[in-house]
Design a protein around this nucleic acid. Sequence first.
DNA 1: GCACATAGTGTCGAAAAGGATACCGTCATG
DNA 2: CATGACGGTATCCTTTTCGACACTATGTGC
Lengths: 120, 120
Amino acid sequence: MPRIRHERLDCSPGCSVEGTLRYIDGKWKGVVLYHLFEGTLRFNEIRRRIPNCTQRMLTNQLRELEADGLIARKIYPEVPPKVEYSLTPRGRSLGPVITALKEWGDANVTLAPQVPQVAA
Amino acid sequence: MPRIRHERLDCSPGCSVEGTLRYIDGKWKGVVLYHLFEGTLRFNEIRRRIPNCTQRMLTNQLRELEADGLIARKIYPEVPPKVEYSLTPRGRSLGPVITALKEWGDANVTLAPQVPQVAA
DNA sequence: GCACATAGTGTCGAAAAGGATACCGTCATG
DNA sequence: CATGACGGTATCCTTTTCGACACTATGTGC
């Protein structure tokens, strides 16, 4: 379950910003959604696209996205398991958000990040 | 310091999405930025706009936003302290992102949130 | 018989985020 | 003299998040 950023949304007019953030908060949700905009993907297809995400984390993120109604999970009762993930209409409605995030990132996040690099 | 969502950004083509998210991640950053789009604000003006945010958290969020070059902090060496916060050009360039977040939130986040409500 | 692929689950523990609370110095006001 | 506003800090503690790793079941291929 994602961090509950705000229990109530009437705290401030900007709160709907945080309300949206709540849905895409989670270390891998943004990327997952981004990849699902390409089309339906199976579990391990997503996994291969996001190598740094552990299996457990991917499962978590997918479950949360599903619980939030953003993605759909279709299980084929086959012998080697087959599960497909796709965007729901609600998920697809996030298009402008993901696009805006992607564009700002492409323009403003240098590929050599000035991230403090944990400095350990 | 924000959670370091991804140390490297070449992990996946969607990573610039997460790259952007890194900047607005933090429980109150989205709202803070949103309010600063209205114009320059003093510390306690922001504070009053976000009543649920503690003083310590607000300071943290502002410091991180400043460190990320999204907001500017101007100190007036006056006797009752006066500090003004405003968006930098870089911060202002987040406009489309904040707008997209706000619009999706307004349209899709019902004011009576179906947040699991901690269910404790 | 062993490894591999599928799509997961369970448990553990470290680290990070965030909340509560108290405190700082200075000035004005009552 | 006490209180409040200003813009913070410092400290402590709890909650959340995330990563590592092992484990599950079934079927295929070698």
